[in-house]
Every structure is written in C-alpha cells, then in structure tokens.
C-alpha cells in the first residue's frame, strides 16, 4: 500500500526527515512513535502534500504510484486521509456543507456521480450516530467553537465517510479525555479493514492501548531508529525515548 524509501524532507530549507524508510501493507495498522521534534508531523504533512514540505531525496509510492507528484486533493480522492492534530476552523461554512462538498469532490475525481443532499445526509447520519456527532454539530460552522473531543470525533466521522485506503492519524489522542479517546478509538477500530492501511502517529503509548498496532516504528531525529511489535510501546513507556534513541545512536 505505502512504500517510503530513504525520504528526506526539508521545511524552510531545514532538513527534518533524514532518510526515512517505511512500508505498510493493506490491512495493516502501523504506529509511529517518537519524541517531540522527531519529525512525526512532518511525515504526516508530507504524505498529505502540504505546501512547504519539500522532498529533497527519496520516494513515496502509494499503490505503486508516485504520491509526491500529486496535489493534495488528488491524494485525497485516491484514498489518502489525514486526521489532523489541530482540525481547522472555517467560519461561515457549515459542517454539513463541507462534508457534502468534500465527498462529492472526491467522487467526481474518481469519475463517480454526485450524491444529492438527501443521499449525503443519509450517509452522514448513518455514520454520525456511532460517533456521537449530533445534528446540531453538523449545522454549526466547521470546527468553530467545537471542543477538542468534538473536533476529533468529526475527524473520525470524515474518515468513516470517505472510506480511505490509507488513513493517517496525527496525534489523534491530543486534547482528549479518556471517554472521548475511547469513543474515537472505537470509531477507528471499526474502520479496520483488510483493504485499508492505517498509520497512527503518537507521542504516548496510551492511544495504542485502544488502537492496537501490528507494528511500531520509533522515529527520532528524522529517521526510524527502532521497530518492533506492539510490545515495543510498553518498553518505550517503561524506559523512555532516551533509552531507545540512545541505543540506536
């Protein structure tokens, strides 16, 4: 599904990722853990194609295609979804309008016909209930005045709605209390699918209690410095990043 080889990424001329290699197959859930400043968010923004993240070397193949050559909306239409750490507020645009526009844009890009308002509403309602996203939330302006939990639930709802092939969850646990975390994690787990790959990016082991990964990669100073099964998270928790990063260096 995703093949990252020797990826070097610079932001404002400063190299952040320094030769990252990573491979995720369909149906797999991988986690990337790492201390602050290790390049976790840079990786997620690079995968989603945010401007200003310059690939200076290496390659990203997604379903055999060169991801780096595609604009962000094309990546989305092809199934790359990034659940953001800080979902953006857009005043005046209702959540429902936004969902409909995004859904139909993606459909159009894939050569499918638009869903009408009723169709979208049905679809959204069906998914919203499980995530405790209320009708009232859908009527409000996108993310404006939403609590941290509401924002993350809405991100998860979008993930359910767009049915991506590759879902990247960037610090999904930040700003969530334990109940909200459980709800979001349940939503994510429900989307586990043999055809779908997930990349969970997190600083803390806590999230991985709820979303159990098949494989864990430790990112430090722009490189993967350790890899292992889910037990690696517990080791990190017990010994801290210093220990593992220090060993690798």
């Amino acid at each position: 599904m995703l093949e990252i080889k020797n990826l070097h990424v610079a932001v404002d001329g400063k190299e952040i990722l320094k030769g990252l290699t990573l491979s995720i197959g369909a149906g797999e859930v991988h986690a990337i853990m790492g201390p602050n400043g290790s390049g976790k968010s840079t990786l997620s923004y690079t995968l989603a194609g945010r401007a200003g993240y310059d690939i200076t070397d290496g390659s990203i193949l997604y379903k055999g295609e060169d991801l780096a050559a595609m604009p962000p909306e094309e990546r989305a239409a092809k199934g790359v979804f990034l659940a953001m750490q800080y979902p953006v507020e857009i005043p005046g645009v209702t959540t429902m309008t936004f969902l409909k526009t995004a859904l139909n844009s993606q459909r159009r890009a894939r050569g499918q016909s638009d869903l009408d308002a009723v169709g979208v509403l049905k679809l959204v309602r069906a998914k919203a209930k499980a995530l405790n996203v209320s009708e009232e939330m859908l009527k409000r302006a996108l993310n404006v005045g939403f609590s941290g939990g509401e924002k993350k639930r809405l991100e998860t709802l979008q993930m359910a709605l767009f049915e991506p092939s590759l879902a990247i969850l960037d610090e999904t646990d930040s700003g969530l209390d334990i109940d909200a975390l459980r709800l979001v994690a349940e939503g994510v787990n429900a989307l586990r699918d043999p055809a779908r790959a997930m990349l969970v990016i997190t600083h803390y082991q806590r999230l991985l209690d709820y979303i159990v990964p098949d494989r864990i990669h430790v990112l430090a100073k722009g490189r993967i410095v350790a890899e292992g099964g889910k037990e690696l998270a517990l080791e990190l928790e017990a010994k801290g990043y210093e220990h593992i990063v220090g060993q690798a260096a």
Binding site: P72, A76, G92, V93, A141
Partner: peptide, 20 residues
C-alpha cells in the same frame, strides 16, 4: 490545505471559504 486534503480542488476550496 484542509480542504485540499479532503479532496476539494483549489478553486472550489476558495469558492467554499469565500461563500462561507
């Protein structure tokens, strides 16, 4: 970027935000 990431092309994203 948020709009682009969700698959909304640039011009449509501008239109969406301005209409909001």
């Amino acid at each position: 970027f948020y709009c682009l990431q969700r698959g909304i092309p640039q011009d449509e994203a501008v239109s969406l935000i301005v209409n909001g």
